[in-house]
Amino acid sequence: MKSCRTFVRSFRDAFRSVIRNFSLSLASITCIAITLIIIAAALLMSDNVKNFTDEIEKDVTVVAFLDSDVTNEKRDNFEMFLKKNSNVELFDYKSKADVKEDMQKENETFSSILAEWDDANNPLKDTYTIKVHDVKKIGNTAKDIEKQDGVNSVQYGEGLVEKLVGVFDAIEKITFCAAIALIIVTVFLIINTIKLTIFSRKREIGIMRLVGASNSRIKLPFVIEGIILGMIGSIIPILIVVLGYTTMYDYFGGILFSPVIKLITPMPFVVNTSIIILLIGMIVGMLGSSRAVRRYIKV
């Protein structure tokens, strides 16, 4: 009952303090809002880059062509091998008849020429389209596949894929590091602003101690106040994320510069990002104020 009362009173004190120290609160809220906007932009960018590279990597497959005279037994063995291989995500088998059919569908000229081939003289090969888990290891996986009995040749866009993966990897790492660095810098900025506003209330904390407030009773309202400031400060960044990103997505029609670069669809992406922004605001506000108060509470 007593601790419940303390909690309720701390909440009331926190709200009262936000309102009565309005100019200081406004300073903290503005700082939090501006920095959270930067973090939001970094998050939106880094997530989109990651999504874009992931999408492209998903399209990379290995195609294995089997020997023309491959036996069913060899094919079964090959499938067993694919199932056991840890880097193979899934594979799709097409007999040469299916391949022929596909090609016929693509083009009418093809269709008439290919129609002349029956199963016996079809020069095409049975194929496996193989999707891998880790595109970085695609080269080795392709080599392993090629070594298998009954495999005639393997194609996966050698050279180009490796280069692409390397570039994407670097871009992903750079944007991620930039986002993290921004978050760290801004977190310090917010913590320091809140610290400054609390330092100006050093006397207040001293008086609280004097009338017999325990350390936790002094700290709690400040911590709650920090969380409130963080929450209020994240309102504008969240609006920018939700409205800004959705508008941008609609304006560009979901693609950026070229159809290859697809933007992440706004829902539920903006909601998730907003939640992250809100959490960062609250946690940072809390950390800032509790660290600042701790300096004035003699432990």
Binding site: R16, S17, R20, N21, R203, E204, G206, I207, M208, R209, L210, V211, G212, A213, S214, N215, R217, K298, V299
Partner: peptide
């Protein structure tokens, strides 16, 4: 101990020359 000082402060009342009231 510092963390227990508040218990003593509840047994005593202190009045200062500069009042030390909370302004807000």
């Amino acid at each position: 101990r510092n963390s227990k000082v508040y218990k003593l402060r509840r047994l005593i009342g202190v009045v200062f020359q500069d009042y030390k009231l909370l302004p807000k």
